[in-house]
Write a protein that binds this DNA or RNA. Structure first.
Length: 621
DNA sequence: GGGCCGAGCCAC
DNA sequence: AAACGTGGCTCGGCCC
């Protein structure tokens, strides 16, 4: 393997000692700039005073070249905008680890000069693509150990956080040679990691997946910076209403529980914590309440629903209010960034199946269904004055993907003809004419259809549809006699996951499985979960691929047309955009076209029309 | 008093 | 014996 790295000679003293130039003047940086602009690849890294791009500053910018040179620019004294031509040169591939972070820093940190990195290769994302589903670490240190064979000392990196702006003297303190060398190493190793990963990606047929991730990385970085506006006044008033309801429910619970209270008289029933499952189980026992003749062992909602006692019903309602207040209440308001007045949740770009996850707050779990108190939360996600929200989701995305993957003629027929799948399913199962299918039958058919996406079995169906397991099994047998292609596909993909130790999406994105040997006591359990996960990942992961591709297209088209709209966030099969009123029509069309095009990129035999809702707040269709 | 984990519940 | 995929968040309860 061709490597520009000096791995040292002594066995136990392997140390990377890159040649680097420490640049402290803008004049010198301007001399280096045209040299850098001649390269096809550049390794890029930054050291900053912190992790929050809104609060932190860049203190070092490191650039490494393929021939083993490293430049360490002191961003405290160098105006790094003189390097813009290279960093924004679309013909140069920028090699980074966790590109989102450096992109955001260069983009909005005070001394980042508003630089917009492009054409990135992110070694962290590549590593996540290469190891999806497995226990892994995509940290630079792990990758350095794996691909370069040398450990990285991370303790030095933490020292950079001491360079805070609050203390001018500290901020301006000179760097030690160890610190500068550490900074240089970060970019020095990148080309080696890049070359090794490229070979691995090629070998695993994961280049297309990696490319998709790199494409969507910057749209995600921009999205996080732009943030999400919520109406704080609206939120406070909703919260007050919910709190009144919650207190009322609490009173009712107290009065029902009082006769059975453990500490009658002393502290009274007020010491009872209705949010504690353990206490509730005890309370039910004292009450002598049972579930179908059995003692109460848990208090989750499905159990409570089967308990025929007023306390159980009241507890269920109490939880609805309690959840809204505890999970979203003040937390949502506290998350509003004082600078931008918006929420800035962060997205993990790749989880096991290829989906994204969201945290701080998790906008992918804002209550949506039912008529409970939680559903009002979405109304607080409003368009600011002069703007509209564009909301669009894919209709039955995962089932359409299942139809595509299985090529089941009956399922495909429903989608191609544009008739309601669940009604069609019910009509075929029970031999009822399509337009005579009762709601209850359609509902069971819908449950079965969704069950398959998750690899569920008779017991799940029995619980969901409130029927016996025998009935559930019989139903599934009838279902599979109609959807033979689906049956064969699911069986095959479960087996393939076990055989190959991975499953894959239409794009080729893989989820890897580690399967223990048969003597492992967990073997049976793990084997069946691998089968279920192997059935699900191609579906769930393809959905993720589609949504990511759509985000990339939308971001590209908004930029290309110099529009001022922004992607707010995705929710798996839904994308929200914030758009100035003047360009709503144009952007709604972009959103529709991009989402449909992304779907058609992967799902060839089934259409999916996307309807964009133009709204003043986050609506659910 | 902080760390960890399971239970429970929110989303798709 | 059970057997529904992917997550994040909060709490209670336990540990040190």
């Amino acid at each position: 393997m061709a490597s520009s790295l000096d791995l040292g000679t002594a066995k136990n003293k392997i140390k990377l000692s890159p040649k680097y130039e420490y640049v402290i003047t803008t004049t010198r940086a301007a001399e280096i700039a045209p040299i850098l602009n001649e390269y096809k690849t550049l390794a890029i890294d930054t050291e900053t005073t912190g992790l929050d791009p809104f609060l932190s500053e860049i203190i070092l910018l490191q650039i490494g070249t393929v021939d083993g040179k490293a430049y360490v620019f002191d961003a405290r004294t160098v105006d790094i905008s003189v390097l813009r031509a290279s960093l924004e040169n679309p013909d140069i591939i920028k090699l980074l680890a966790n590109a989102k972070f450096d992109y955001q820093m260069l983009r909005i940190a005070k001394n980042g000069a508003g630089i917009e990195l492009n054409n990135i290769y992110d070694a962290m994302l590549a590593e996540e693509v290469l190891t999806a589903g497995l226990e892994y670490s995509a940290s630079l240190a792990s990758m350095c150990a794996k691909y370069v064979g040398v450990p990285l000392d991370k303790t030095i990196r933490n020292e950079f956080e001491d360079f805070t702006r609050n203390d001018t003297a500290t901020f301006k303190a000179p760097f030690t040679s160890e610190q500068l060398e550490y900074a240089a190493v970060d970019v020095y190793i990148m080309h080696t990691i890049f070359e090794s990963q490229l070979r691995a990606l090629e070998k695993e047929n994961l280049l297309d997946t990696a490319k998709l991730e790199f494409d969507v990385c910057i749209p995600i970085a921009e999205m996080e910076l732009h943030g999400v506006y919520i109406d704080p006044n609206k939120w406070v008033s909703i919260l007050e209403e919910v709190e009144i309801e919650r207190k009322a429910k609490e009173k009712v619970l107290h009065s029902l529980a009082e006769p059975y209270s453990e500490q009658q008289g002393l502290f009274g029933a007020s010491s009872t914590n209705f949010s504690s499952p353990a206490q509730m189980v005890k309370l039910f026992k004292r009450m002598g309440v049972d579930v179908r003749g059995e003692e109460v062992f848990d208090t989750n909602s499905s159990t409570l629903e089967t308990i025929n006692h007023p306390f159980a019903r009241e507890l269920l309602e109490y939880r609805g209010y309690d959840k809204v207040i505890k999970a979203f209440g003040q937390k949502l308001l506290q998350r509003i960034n004082p600078k931008t007045k918006r929420l800035h949740p962060s997205f993990r770009q790749i989880i096991r199946t290829g989906r994204m996850s969201c945290s701080g707050p998790n906008l992918q779990q804002i209550p949506a269904k039912g008529s409970g108190p939680g559903t009002k939360i979405r109304e607080c996600f409003v368009a600011p004055a002069g703007y509209k929200l564009l909301v669009a989701d894919y209709s039955q995305c995962e089932l359409r993907i299942l139809a595509e993957l299985s090529q089941d003629p009956v399922m495909m027929n429903a989608y191609i003809k544009g008739i309601d799948l669940h009604t069609d399913t019910a009509s075929r199962i029970w031999g009822i004419p399509f337009d005579k299918v009762p709601k209850a039958q359609r509902s069971i058919a819908k449950t079965i259809n969704f069950l398959l996406v998750y690899g569920g079995g008779p017991s799940t169906l029995a619980a969901r549809a409130a029927i016996s397991e025998d009935e559930a099994e019989a139903l599934i047998n009838v279902y599979f006699s109609i959807y033979k292609g689906v049956k064969a596909y699911l069986a095959n993909s479960g087996k393939a996951a076990l055989l190959n130790r991975y499953s894959k999406t239409i794009l080729g994105r893989k989820r890897f499985f580690s399967i223990p040997t048969q003597d492992n006591p967990e073997f049976k359990r793990i084997r069946s979960s691998v089968e279920r996960e192997g059935k699900n990942q191609p579906i769930q992961g393809t959905n993720a691929d589609i949504t990511k591709r759509a985000m990339y297209y939308i971001h590209r088209d908004i930029k290309r047309n110099n529009l001022k709209s922004h992607i707010l966030f995705p929710v798996h099969d839904e994308i929200l955009i914030e758009s100035p009123e003047a360009e709503v029509e144009q952007v709604a069309l972009i959103q529709k076209n991009c989402m449909e095009a992304a779907f058609a990129d992967f799902v060839k035999s089934i259409p999916n029309k996307v309807d964009v809702m133009v709204c003043d707040y986050w609506k659910k269709d």
